[in-house]
Amino acid sequence: MEKNVGGFDRTWRLVVGPVLVLAAVAAFGGLVSLSTPVAVIALVAGVVFLATGVLQTCFLNRLLGLDTYHDAGEESDASGGMSEERPQ
């Protein structure tokens, strides 16, 4: 599949995903008081966010026509407005 997750989108997925997984694990271990359905939802959402951040592919982004991977690439290709042509 073609990559469609990049930039800030990827960063927040790689941060929020593990936080949700840790919260769910803590809830299952009795360290945090969350109901079981909430802990399961947090675990599933965390795993999905983490996987889509690592793989840089999101099925929902594809359905909605979102592509933050190429948006991030365009910013880094700009190179501060400098062109590759040699001055004359």
Rank of each mutant, 00 (worst) to 15 (best):
G80K: 05
L64D: 04
P37A: 10
V54N: 00
Q56N: 13
A51L: 12
G73C: 12
E85V: 04
S79R: 15
L22G: 13
S33C: 02
R10F: 11
T36I: 11
P18M: 05
L43H: 01
G81F: 07
A72Y: 09
L64S: 09
Q88H: 07
L22D: 09
V54S: 01
N61H: 15
E75I: 15
A24N: 03
S83D: 14
V38Q: 04
G65I: 14
E84H: 13
L20I: 02
L34P: 03
N4D: 11
V40P: 00
R13C: 05
V47S: 08
E2K: 12
N61I: 08
F8S: 02
A72L: 08
L55D: 07
G29Y: 11
L50W: 14
L14T: 02
G46V: 08
L20M: 13
C58H: 10
P18K: 00
E75W: 11
L14M: 08
P18I: 11
V48C: 03
T36P: 02
G80E: 11
P37W: 11
G46A: 09
A78C: 01
N4M: 12
V48E: 06
T11V: 15
E84T: 03
V32N: 03
R13A: 07
G29T: 06
V15K: 00
G6T: 02
